[in-house]
């Protein structure tokens, strides 16, 4: 039973149901007229998520006995965390400083590992595009300094 519950598809359905239920509680506590449509939408969301969860549990139950081969640990969560950290850091550090290590990490994880292509790629893709948009095309990106230089 536990093996069935920790299957990624079941966990996804469960997470959707929990999120929908949590948001529904917020919607039902909110003002009547502003929350009319969200209440309808979130109720449908919860019903659908519950149906999906039941379906996934039924589908996974016969499979739980099949042994799975051990999988190598993927560095994908590292890339996801880097994207999220860079996104959060932009508000306080400006655009350029967070994206340079992000671009370098992306290139590294996609196997651009020789120093010259890695450094050049980071400077051209990260720094070059930032300079093009921020300083040449004057599309103002978040800046560290109030004068907007970086």
């Amino acid at each position: 039973m536990l093996a069935t519950l920790i299957h990624p598809r079941v966990l996804t359905a469960l997470a959707l149901l929990v999120a929908g239920a949590g948001l529904s509680i917020t919607a039902w506590q909110g003002p009547e007229s502003a929350m009319l449509v969200p209440r309808i939408v979130l109720t449908i969301w919860c019903v659908m998520a519950l149906a999906i969860l039941v379906g996934e549990l039924i589908r996974q139950a016969p499979r739980q006995r099949t042994a799975k081969a051990p999988r190598a640990r993927s560095p994908l969560p590292l890339l996801m965390a880097a994207v999220l950290i860079a996104a959060v850091a932009t508000a306080s550090l400006g655009f350029l400083i967070p994206v340079l290590p992000l671009v370098a990490l992306t290139l590294w994880l996609f196997r651009i590992r020789r120093p010259l292509p890695l450094v050049l790629g980071t400077i051209v893709i990260g720094g070059g595009l930032w300079f093009l948009f921020h300083h040449v095309l004057m599309i103002r990106l978040p800046a560290l300094l109030t004068n907007g230089v970086i």
Binding site: I125, G126, L129
Partner: peptide
């Protein structure tokens, strides 16, 4: 271009 440069570019353009 190697896939890494394309993906790095997509991340950068997505952010911009």
């Amino acid at each position: 271009l190697p896939l890494g440069f394309v993906m790095g570019g997509i991340v950068m353009f997505s952010f911009i």
